[in-house]
Each structure stands twice: as structure tokens, then as C-alpha cells.
Write a protein that binds this DNA or RNA. Structure first.
Lengths: 178, 178
DNA sequence: CCTCTATATGTGTTGTTGCACATAGGCTGG
DNA sequence: CCAGCCTATGTGCAACAACACATATAGAGG
């Protein structure tokens, strides 16, 4: 119950090839559910076998041809049924936080460097999310689908802001204590 | 590179049996790295075979005996070496956020109910984290190990606060738009 | 005496993910 | 003409995690 549904979600908006899907899973929806392309192609075949998708071959000029997938009615029903199922909050799994549990037995300067690195990475993502918000969701009149995506993006922004400020404070605390 | 190190981290503070470790992975360190007991017992045997741990049998009265594990010097070195390795930020994987991407094709009242449910769960965790902070980290003079744990706990608190406020606002936005 | 709960430790199976590797068309620039 | 890159689609394998199931001691309470 996982990638399968994320693919149905993507295809509920528009028909896409495996390659295009992989790009979505690297950018847009990938912020909240990442997947590699081998995973995606495998899942697409499975979903097609189950009758949730159909595929059509599109010939292209200047590029290799591609196979575009669309939701069937059964697929759309499966998406709806999935949306009614309860969701558990995902478990946090973060090595950096685990390392803080052994502050006496780890390489402290290395930890500080890692915190710095994390800070920069989260700052970069934050910039990216804010750029997306400004460029794609600035309109005052969003469709309900866009509205939903914006709410998710909002979580992304807060999540990154939270990390940025936490990293800064953690670094400060650890510096004063060194 | 995963549960293995979280176990080394736990044992760097004190010797523990598999059962005690499982409890830690349900409460304390489990907030940032969860594991089930079968996983833990399997990993312990592996780490022992690798020479990172040694075990001693402790007979108990009134309870079944237990096997207590301790870090060897090699184990402590492995922990230190691991702490020097770079960490990637963990990928977010959250079905609830994925569902927001298909707001037009899902069961909207069900989504609202799920948001409510999530809100309550995060509120509960937040209460739990704050309770732990007050009861275990209130002292002005913490050891450096405790200091590290507190920094991690601080992330837990902010993380939950963030979820709580996001859920509230998401519910509000979706209500006004219905 | 029986059930329930807590302590204590596992096996077996399945599902998911990640990662490395494989292939192939066609454009662009040196 | 060749290298490098983007498009496009896969296979194979290993690691990891989730979940159900299995087993045993011993106290507490009905």
C-alpha cells in the first residue's frame, strides 16, 4: 500500500509515461513520496495487469517512443477506496538524531560538520519550495486540486523551516558546551 | 547502516538485554528510530558474531533469565567510525500528504476525518514529549550525554508542534473551501 | 486451578526498497 | 566521427522491514 497509490494519484491528474512519472517522483510528489525509476516501471506493469491502468504507445520524433499510462474506471475506484483507509503517521528515522543520543562516544567535530551540512541542505530545499510556491501557486484563484497540492507544499515549507532553525540552535548549544 | 548503529548507540550508555533494548526502541530512542523486537534480536546476534558485542547470561528470580549485551572495544570503535560518516536527510514518506495531491478524486470527508485523527495523534505525542522534557531534563546541570538527548527531544517537540498547527490550518482551509 | 499479564527470546514469510547494472535511440558540440 | 547527455525502459539481487506466529517462565487475581 504504497508506491502503487502514489502512482494512481499522479495519473488521476494526467496521463503519463514511466519516464514522466519518474520525473514527478523526483520533484513534485517526490517531496512526500520518493521512488526510483525501476520501482516505477515495475509497479506500472503490476497495475496494468490488475486492470487499474491501460497503456498506449506514443511515437515521438527526435526521441525514443514512450508508453503512456491512463487510469481506468477500476483504477479511479481503487484510488477512491484507498483514500478512505486510515493512515498512520510515518515513523521518523533519522541517523543524525540517533547520534545525538551518544554524544559522549561519537566524533563531535564530525557531528558539528554534519549539522552544518544538514542546515545547508534544508535551507536549499526551503528555497526550492518557496520558489515553487511563488511561481506555481501565487494565483488567488486556485483549482481545488491545486489547493490540495498547496496545502501539502505548505507542510514541506514548515518542515524545512523547522529543520533550519533547529540545526542553527543545535549548533549554537553544542558550540557553547564544547 | 541502520538499526545496527542505533543498537550500538543504546549500548554505549549502558548494557542491556534484547528485551530492554526493545523497550528503548518503543520509547526513548524509538522516537527517532523505531524497531520491532524480532529485528532487534536478529541484529544482536549479528553484532555479536561480528565481535562488536559480548553477551552474559543473567539469572533472575521471579522472571525468566535474560541475556545482557555489552559493547566491546571494537564495538565502540565501530560506533565512532559510523559517527564520522555523512548522513543524508531522511526521505519524507507520508500517505496523507500524497492524498492531498488528488483532492478531486478522493473521499474528501474521509480525508478531513484523517486529518482530525492525525491532529489528535500529534497532540498526544507532543504532550508525551513535553512530559519527558519536564520530568527527565528539567535540571539546569545536564551531563553532556543528556544534553545531546535533549537536543534530539527538542526536535521531536518542534516536529509535533509543526504537525499540530499544520493539521489545524489544513482543516480550516478545507472547511472554508467545501 | 485457570487466566491474564509481563518478562524474555525467538522463527518464517512476505513485501518493499535500494542499488548496481543493462540497453537503446537520437541530439549536440568538439 | 566520437563523447557526452537526455530520453526511455528495463533486470537481478541484496538488504531491510513488517507482520504473523511460536515458546517459555512466573507472578497476580479471581
Amino acid at each position: 500500500m504504497a508506491l502503487e497509490h502514489a502512482i494512481l494519484v499522479c495519473l488521476s491528474e494526467q496521463d503519463l509515461s514511466g519516464y514522466d512519472l519518474a520525473k514527478q517522483f523526483d520533484t513534485s510528489i517526490g517531496f512526500f513520496w520518493h521512488a526510483s525509476h525501476p520501482q516505477i516501471y515495475r509497479e506500472l506493469r503490476k497495475l496494468k495487469d490488475q486492470g487499474l491502468l491501460v497503456s498506449t504507445d506514443h511515437s515521438q520524433v527526435g526521441k525514443p517512443n514512450k508508453t503512456v499510462y491512463s487510469l481506468t474506471d477500476t483504477g479511479r475506484e481503487a484510488l477512491f477506496a484507498w483514500s478512505q483507509r486510515a493512515v498512520e503517521p510515518p515513523a521518523v528515522k533519522d541517523e543524525l538524531l540517533v547520534r545525538l543520543y551518544a554524544l559522549d562516544d561519537i566524533d563531535r567535530p564530525a557531528l558539528m560538520a554534519q549539522l552544518h551540512d544538514r542546515l545547508e541542505k534544508h535551507q536549499e530545499r526551503l528555497r526550492q519550495y518557496r520558489r515553487i510556491k511563488e511561481t506555481q501557486y501565487a494565483s488567488p484563484d486556485l483549482s481545488s486540486r491545486q489547493q490540495g497540492k498547496l496545502i501539502a507544499l505548505e507542510m514541506g515549507i514548515r518542515y524545512e523551516e523547522n529543520w533550519v532553525s533547529w540545526c542553527e540552535e543545535a549548533l549554537e548549544t553544542l558550540t557553547n558546551r564544547a
